[in-house]
Every structure is written in structure tokens, then in C-alpha cells.
Design a protein around this nucleic acid. Structure first.
Lengths: 123, 123
DNA sequence: ATTGATAGATTACAGACGTAAATGAAGAAG
DNA sequence: CTTCTTCATTTACGTCTGTAATCTATCAAT
């Protein structure tokens, strides 16, 4: 089952914490960046449980939630999906697209150069 | 308004044709790659009209549809959205991700090398 | 003019999503 | 033991999506 946009925001909170979090913790973590009511966040936690993207272990009265889906896997699925749909499944055309749109920063450029070089050296 | 996945499949057909197409043409173009009923495609065309992503000009009995939203713009919105959400808004980390996952083909590598070189030369 | 075909417009309907309120159960307080 | 509090679970509800069927208007044929 795919993780929805709203759900992924909650996942982000859990991914950032290496420790299991209570619902209250999650609510607190999102207090500044979102204006979701607590009930909304509870719903999202439950849907994520249903999708088995997170797990919950009882801690007395409440539960502690932690990510079960790995961020890397999520990122990969999403990215591959987009690259398959829009760029024929290859990464270079995406980079070319951003290059042509003038959307490659100096930093990007430098990092890409370093990456390529590194790959060339070790292949 | 965002273009949905199903709608984008119809857009693809229109993007590929430099000529306006009738609904029947679109149905024909999708016959092999999808198993949508004609009614479904009509619905999608109408929704795209509603979103003003395509335009229709009467041609006797029927309409001829053509893309109004440019593919480049669509691709850019989608790609930027993903890169912002998952890679801090920069392209290089996405490439790094695929590199680490061992998902950069020889072809990708070569193309990236060429791209970087070209950008270096002209900057 | 009536009838049949055809293309577009309207309606349908279940599931996902964003957003949340209401309810229920279990522990804390008195 | 009864009551309050606090979580979690259930229910809600409008919109969007995927997927179509049906209705309607118009053009062609008789």
C-alpha cells in the first residue's frame, strides 16, 4: 500500500527519531510545522499501522510508535516511480532536465562532479 | 489543479501527437497499452478539460483535443515536487541515492559525465 | 419527417485521502 | 468503588480518483 503525502509527513517525524515515540511526541514534533489537530495525527498513525508502515508497542497506558518501513525504501520507491514514469527509467535524463531548466546549483554541480569521479575511480 | 496518474496517461498521448486528436484517436492510441473502456477515456478527457490541461476545438460532430499544459512544465512540477520532498530540493542527493543503490547504468554514467563536462566548459 | 448511429455530457459508485469529532476503555484520583 | 482523565478506536464526511454506464443531442440515412 502506498503511503500518502500526509502520512509521509508523520513518517518523517518517526524517521528522524531513532527512538520510538508516543502519539503525543509526534503531535509535539509537528506542532510548529503543521496545524493538524491531534485527532488528525492519530488518524494518520492508525492508517500507517494499517499499512504496516509503522509498529506500535504498548507502554503502559499508551503506545510507542516506530517506523517499520525504512526511509531509504520509501525514497527509492517514490523516486524510481517518478523516474520510470517521466524519464524512461534512467537518472541522467532527469539531471539533464534540471540542467536545461538552469536548476543545477553550484553545489549540485560540484557534488555531481565528485560523485562521477568517485565512481570512475572505483569501477 | 494536479493531474492525476490516469489523466497523465492521456496527456502522454496528446503530448506525443503534434496534431490535435479526436477522442476516438486517443482511444485508438491507448488500445494496446491500456484496457480502459472508451467511456473511461472520455471521462479523463473531460476532467482534463475541467482542469484546463487540454483544449478542445469543434470539428463537425466531434471535438479535437490538444494539450495546453506543456509536458516540460508537468515534468518539472512533478520532479521538483519529489526532489523538494525527499532530497532537500537538490538534484545531486537524488543521484547519490541511485548511485548508492547501484542503480546507475553505464549509459547513465556516460551521459552524466558528458553533461557535467559540457556544463564545466560553458561556465 | 422518422429512425438509427455516434459522440459528447451527465450520472454512478466504491475506495483513498485530508481532516477531524465522538466514543470507549483503562488507569489515576478521590 | 465511583468519577475524572487520557489515550486509543470508531465513525464521519466532503473531495478526488479510477473506472464506467447511461442519457442526450446531433448528423446521416431512409
Amino acid at each position: 500500500m502506498p503511503i500518502s503525502d500526509a502520512e509521509s509527513v508523520v513518517m518523517d517525524v518517526l524517521w528522524r527519531s531513532r527512538v520510538p515515540m508516543s502519539a503525543e511526541d509526534v503531535v509535539a514534533a509537528l506542532a510548529s510545522s503543521s496545524d493538524w489537530r491531534e485527532a488528525t495525527i492519530k488518524t494518520l498513525l492508525n492508517r500507517l499501522l494499517g499499512k504496516r508502515a509503522i509498529s506500535a508497542t504498548r507502554d503502559g497506558k499508551r503506545y510507542l510508535y516506530s517506523a517499520r518501513l525504512k526511509r531509504e525504501d520509501y525514497v527509492h520507491t517514490e523516486s524510481k516511480g517518478l523516474i520510470d514514469r517521466l524519464f524512461g527509467g534512467r537518472v541522467a535524463p532527469l539531471v539533464a532536465h534540471f540542467s536545461e531548466a538552469g536548476k543545477l546549483s553550484k553545489k549540485d554541480l560540484a557534488e555531481l562532479r565528485r560523485l562521477i569521479e568517485e565512481l570512475d575511480n572505483d569501477a
